[in-house]
Write a protein that binds this DNA or RNA. Structure first.
Length: 332
DNA sequence: TGTTAAATCCGGGCCGGTTT
DNA sequence: AAACCGGCCCGGATTTAACA
């Protein structure tokens, strides 16, 4: 009896030793975390973990590959000589950090965990369930790209009886997936139209200074497209959508920017006001000479028939012009 | 829906005749 | 002499219409 017990104890100990060994092997610090970044702008677009030459080989998801094809990019090792678990955790943290700070990563599966086959099948089932329920708008191709599966595999999972014993499985990154593929999401074209509507609204409100033609050029559409969009003749169902780069547009079309022409007109307004207030004594011709414009033009700002009178925002002349005005000041 | 060309709109600028 | 005022032209911006 005691012999048997001893044997059991020894076996258990042996097992424990073996487990420790395999733990050691599994935890061997050969993993690293890497990221892909665009050389020119230093923008990170993908974060991953791996060992060996994983960072430099294989394709990633389509969006990531698109950027790889479009830009000069490089690999950067963020952390190395770590265990798989550490790598995973660092990778997740890093992705979270980037996402929180607004960096648009192309990572689809956070943590870069390659799902097991069984999990992948579960995900496919879950996603096709959401498609069926009208929650998501995804084609089978979308699903296969998302899960890095073969298209025909996805078709098999959805349409054949071979996988009935596997239950739908909620994907970890369901949040991102729904945001990207929900039924009310918009295509790139629709987003562009929504952006145009948004800017049109700001033009209407005099918050931005640009013509519809400029807007059309900015978004690489024709002015008549913009006109139709504005009138709701096309894309009536697309709402206003804030452009991602709305700040750039504000900088480019700043409503308070004053062009040289506007300055001239503003100065005419300024001088005419001073003349009307009796501060300056000048003829239209005098004003024309000082500002190097025709006296005809000056007269337009001084019309008595209001409907044709030119109006501009007053602009205070610089020192040089002011100096030229000095002889015309009325001495009291 | 989108493209293209033509039509229309509209403001800027200039002019000449008339008035101040 | 300077200002006033309607007319007119030009050209860019926008809209419309015809059509793939």
């Amino acid at each position: 009896m005691s012999d048997i017990n001893e044997e059991n104890i020894i076996n258990t100990e042996l097992e424990a030793i073996q487990n420790t060994e395999s733990d050691l092997i599994n935890n061997y610090k050969e993993y690293y975390v890497y990221e892909y970044y665009i050389e020119e702008s230093n923008e990170v677009f993908y974060v991953g973990k791996g060992k060996g030459n994983r960072a430099w080989k294989d394709v990633r998801n389509p969006e990531c590959e698109k950027i790889k094809a479009e830009y000069e990019w490089k690999v950067r090792i963020v952390e190395e000589g770590i265990t798989e678990d550490e790598a995973l955790s660092i990778e997740r943290d890093l992705i979270e950090k980037y996402r929180a700070s607004g960096v648009m990563l192309t990572n689809i599966m956070p943590g870069g965990v390659k799902p097991t086959e069984k999990e992948a099948i579960g995900y496919v089932k879950y996603l096709s369930f959401l498609v069926e329920k009208g929650v998501l708008q995804m084609s089978l191709v979308d699903i296969s790209n998302l899960l890095l599966l073969n298209q025909s595999t996805v078709w098999q999972i959805v349409n054949s009886e071979h996988y009935t014993d596997i239950d739908p499985l909620l994907p970890e990154n369901i949040n991102e997936i729904i945001h990207k593929y929900h039924v009310n999401s918009y295509t790139d074209d629709q987003i562009r139209v929504g952006n145009i509507k948004y800017i049109l609204d700001l033009i209407e409100k005099d918050v931005l200074k640009l013509s519809q033609a400029q807007l059309a050029e900015y978004y690489e559409v024709t002015p008549s497209n913009v006109s139709s969009i504005k009138k709701g003749k096309t894309h009536a169902n697309v709402p206003l959508l804030i452009p991602d780069n709305v700040g750039d547009i504000f900088k480019r079309f700043d409503v308070f920017y004053v062009s040289e022409e506007e300055k001239i007109r503003g100065m005419i307004m300024f001088i005419i006001r001073l003349r009307n207030e009796g501060i300056l004594r000048m003829t239209n011709r005098d004003i024309g000479r000082v500002l190097e414009v025709s006296d005809y033009l000056v007269a337009e700002f001084n019309r008595t028939n209001e409907d044709r009178k030119y109006v501009a925002k007053e602009y205070r002349p610089d020192a040089e012009i002011m100096a030229k005005l000095i002889p015309y000041f009325v001495v009291k």
